[in-house]
């Protein structure tokens, strides 16, 4: 199979280029894209990419495969390959450090901006805070985010305003805490989001929903935040 990989080493390359590699795949086995990269790296150790858990829970190997963002470790080659060719690029919209490795600083900064931790100043009892299964169910589809950045880097609004628009991943987390019955900082959280960029730059394009490897729905969460902002304003 022909694999076209994005290559860039800041020390030796003046500009990035696509490298074509012919990879022989084992018969009768549908490899994941990460396995293919590992095969390439066995021959050419200079290829750089991040990987850790290889089962889709750590979020290290977000990349762009044949035009769509996803996790290389849980994307079968057969699912993305087009005309016998696999094209692998780094996540779009972030500076490339080397090859498939991007600088995620701005992504993490937007995550941290929403204060992604429980805020509750009431003294805790000697046991856990109670939460009904129904209240807890509101966190499903929110807390599972793995910070792989597939969503935010597929979002045009995030491409245009990465400094000001929180982006789908950050907003999903913002809502995860707004929706938590144990959190007491709802008003402060909403105040910090009530500007024309942070939330409202979401144009409902829904690329985030289409690429999320965990099947989460940031657009829906953003809708909930907007509703909360609206009902707070009226």
């Amino acid at each position: 199979m022909l694999v076209s990989v994005y290559r860039y080493n800041p020390e030796t390359d003046r500009e990035p280029y696509m490298q074509n590699v012919d990879v022989s795949l084992p018969e009768g086995k549908d490899l994941m894209v990460l396995d293919v990269l590992n095969l390439i790296k066995e021959k050419d150790q200079s290829l750089s990419y991040r990987r850790s858990c290889r089962e889709g829970v750590c979020g290290s190997d977000g990349m762009n495969m044949n035009g769509k963002n996803g996790l290389a470790c849980i994307t079968p080659v057969s699912e993305v390959v087009k005309n016998g060719k696999l094209v692998v690029r780094p996540l779009p919209g972030l500076p490339v450090v080397r090859d498939l490795v991007v600088d995620m600083a701005i992504f993490y900064k937007q995550y941290q901006r929403v204060k992604p931790y429980l805020q509750n100043s009431s003294p805790a009892s000697g046991r856990e805070r109670l939460q009904s299964p129904e209240e807890r169910a509101k966190l499903d589809g929110l807390y599972e985010c793995i910070l792989c950045a597939c969503c935010s880097t597929s979002c045009p609004s995030f491409w245009w305003n990465p400094e000001k628009f929180v982006g789908p991943a950050g907003l999903l987390q913002a809502y995860r805490f707004l929706a938590d019955s144990r959190d007491e900082a709802t008003d402060e959280r909403l105040s910090e989001l009530d500007d024309p960029f942070s939330v409202f730059r979401c144009r409902g394009i829904m690329n985030c929903v289409s690429v999320c490897p965990k099947g989460l729905n940031p657009t829906k969460a953003i809708g909930h935040i907007r509703d909360m902002l609206l009902s707070r304003a009226t």
């Binding site: 009530d194 024309p196 939330v199 409202f200």
Partner: peptide, 18 residues
């Protein structure tokens, strides 16, 4: 934090409602 000098409304909600 956000530069919205040239913004028409006071807030994102206001803009959105407008």
């Amino acid at each position: 934090m956000v530069t919205n000098v040239l913004n028409y409304g006071r807030s994102g909600v206001h803009d959105w409602v407008m």
